Simulated assay, not measured.
Amino acid sequence: MSVQIPLIHWIHRGQPQQALWRSESGAPAPRRVEVADDTLSADTAYRMACEGTGLLWQGDFQNARHLLQALMRRVDKKPRKSATKASQKLAAATPAEAFHLHRQAQAQRARVLAAVLIPLEGDYSIALRRAPDWREACTEAWGPATGERRVATLRELLGLVGAHEWRKKGVEVPALGAPPHNCIHPHYGVFSPVRGEYVDLVAQTPLPGTSLAFDIGVGTGVLSAVLARRGVQRVVATDQDPRALVCARENLQRLGVLPQVELLQADLFPAGRAPLVVCNPPWVPARASSPIEHAVYDEGSRMLRGFLSGLKDHLEPGGEGWLILSDLAEHLGLRPRDQLLGWIADAGLVVSGRRDVKPRHAKAADAQDPLHAARAAEVTSLWRLRVA
């Protein structure tokens, strides 16, 4: 069944215009679209953006970037009275309430900043004055151009270009060895292994065997690469996301370990059993607002519970399941430790060991972060699970 791609409509110089609407997050096209150019003031643009109006840019491209920066300053600057009320509300909130307030604020900010819209021609070129050539980045993210005009938010395009540059440069992963043979090149829409502590746990925990391992949710392929570099003869890696599988294949090929890894599109487990099954599921049980957020947010702990409930049927006798999981959800009051332990027991599993590490990411040390208390207490663990 074909998917109906939404259209976005506007009037320019008295003529009706339309183009395909492109949104990575799946956000609907704005119901009202006004043509905007260099004469539009930032204050007026902010008012219109708050009302839900899309600003279809027809002026100088660099001025569109300046306008987006101006919108950021306005949306991040709260009136003193509102800021005081917000601070009081946060102070009185439980950790879970603070998290949901934070997510609501993030969503509102994203809606305002998504107001600046950029038209793209059928070959992904941008026919605006002083516009950059982002055709290669668009092709990487969206596939070959189809000849049809599109409209995307400037903010999404900037993220797309940032991902393109990150893909070219790569991310060093010390657990994979010395440069230049230790880089992972994340693709657009695939979560980057910037939180290296979970990779280190997989690199340092004693292996129960080296004949075979399953890597559930392969992502960029980093954990499969670590296992292969550690001497695991064969790794079967799965993921639901076609982008992740393409990304993993390229990374594993570049690192020279692809012959040891079989990649499959699957929800959780491949067929059969293995002496080692590894999974690093999303760690926060909340709804994702874009595809890439599925690496962090797992509504209802679906992937975590699916991994635990199915692990027993995919472990060889004496084998181990490695669950790599941050306890941030516990500090946010979203999933108590007793609940996790209950799921493990209900799945017919026991904990044979655990290795812990403190996260090293910047937010863990940012006292201005609304969730700082939870992030500062966060620990990432590798749970070694066996059949009871």
Rank of each mutant, 00 (worst) to 15 (best):
S2H: 15
Q4L: 15
P16R: 14
Q17A: 15
Q18E: 15
S25Y: 11
P28T: 05
E34W: 10
A36T: 05
D37E: 13
L40W: 00
A42G: 04
R47S: 10
E51F: 07
L56W: 13
L67V: 04
D76I: 03
Q88T: 03
K89G: 03
L90Y: 06
L90V: 00
A91T: 05
A93T: 01
L101C: 02
L101D: 09
A107H: 07
A115S: 02
D133I: 03
L157A: 12
L157P: 12
G159K: 00
W166N: 11
R167A: 13
K169M: 10
V173E: 13
P174W: 01
L176I: 08
H187S: 14
P193K: 05
R195L: 10
V202I: 12
G209T: 05
G209S: 13
S211R: 06
S224L: 09
V226S: 02
A228T: 04
V232R: 00
Q233M: 07
A237R: 03
T238P: 11
R243V: 09
Q260H: 09
L263S: 02
L268G: 04
V278T: 08
A286E: 04
P291L: 04
E293S: 04
E293G: 07
E293T: 08
E299F: 07
G300P: 05
L304W: 09
G306Q: 09
G310V: 10
L315P: 00
L315N: 03
G319L: 06
L332N: 05
R337Q: 15
D338T: 13
G342V: 03
A347F: 08
S352Y: 01
H361S: 02
L371I: 12
A373Q: 13
W383D: 09
